[in-house]
Design a protein around this nucleic acid. Structure first.
Lengths: 201, 201
DNA sequence: GCACGATACGGAACATTGTTCCGCTTAGCA
DNA sequence: TGCTAAGCGGAACAATGTTCCGTATCGTGC
């Protein structure tokens, strides 16, 4: 969906192969480093993990916010893209649950992002929108399939659920047992109103 | 209200006179520097303005969040404390207007604080509460006096007003003409429903 | 008023991180 | 295969956070 660092680029010549490799490596490394150290992690940590020099980093991401934004979008895309595979592979309720857990994992790597979002940098303005626009339809589809299968009630609002799980998963601390338990609680809640004789797990 | 940096101190021996001077100087300097450069301003800028060494700074504020929190509380106190004098010196409606402008000035120095508040540092958890607990009664009193004088309507909610002006004053950019105009607009709005034949300015 | 111990001060030194610069390497192309 | 522009690496520099310790000051008991 996004093949480069700057989203505002008008018409930029296609990246040379090695440059594309660098960008990919940096995004992958940054995602890992952000997950373990937050978005304020030192540049050197990222370049080291990516195996590139500092110059290369600043060539592709002159502003830190460019990198943060790019990593965020890439991870949103990846998480949203996981849904179809789950839908194809599992029954609707399982697909739903597994995707919610995947989503919680996504949220868990967002330490420090909340503060960045409030920094006032206009680069971030579009991120909440990107978040909603990508996730809401995905979850709506999962919910609808599960509802049509009679596994869950049909009046759940996707956006409500996304925010609820977003809040549940914020901590990131200790084991994610807690988040997982809360998710299954939510899913049980969804099942409660299903047409058939659903029973809590 | 708060005579030292750490709010969690159990029973700490009273500060030596020179230490108290240092703390005061640092808080005053930090307030100025924060206002002009945001809460991420370099430590050296603060110590230079306060006329103290780096060691002194870290002795009193081991964590930056300690300083930010202390400055915030001190300024909340000062702003809230300005109300009685205004009440004594001006008619109720004037006192109300002047205090709201003072409050807007307070908000205008809070660049970067919003991001800090979302950083997750538990030191900040109590600040929003402190903000509300100090300002709401003050404004409620000003509103009530103005309402009893027949200058404004009596159904205004203090907390609503605080948040509204907080939002109006956020920018801090250009001249504060804009904020001032918006405040007088709000006050006119309050006057509109007054019992007597109040007329917009 | 004086001496003494505890407390606090200042600022140089060190550590960490952000950012730039430039000689060298490589991809893409004719 | 050779040329050129794009890209790379990492040393060097700059800005800032943080520590350390010799010196100065305060509060106190006499």
């Amino acid at each position: 969906m996004d093949d480069g660092p700057s989203t505002a680029g008008q018409q930029r010549p296609p990246l040379r192969a090695d440059a594309q490799r660098s960008v990919d490596a940096l995004l992958a490394a940054a995602a890992e480093v952000f997950a373990e150290s937050g978005v304020d992690a030192p540049v050197r940590k990222i370049t080291a993990k990516a195996g590139v020099g500092a110059g290369t980093f600043y060539r592709h991401f002159p502003q830190r916010s460019d990198l943060i934004s790019a990593v965020f979008r890439r991870e949103v895309d990846a998480c949203a893209a996981a849904a179809p595979a789950l839908t194809a592979q599992y029954p609707p309720l399982d697909a739903l649950t597994r995707w919610l857990e995947r989503f919680a994992g996504f949220i868990a790597t967002k330490r420090g992002l909340s503060a960045a979002l409030h920094s006032g940098d206009p680069v971030y303005d579009s991120l909440p929108c990107y978040f909603q626009q990508n996730f809401e339809p995905v979850l709506a589809d999962l919910l609808e399939r599960a509802a049509q299968a009679g596994a869950i009630r049909s009046d759940a609002d996707p956006w409500d659920l996304l925010r609820a799980i977003g809040n549940l998963a914020v901590p990131l601390e200790d084991g994610d047992d807690h988040t997982q338990r809360m998710i299954s609680l939510l899913v049980d809640g969804l099942r409660y109103g299903a047409g058939a004789g659903a029973q809590p797990s």
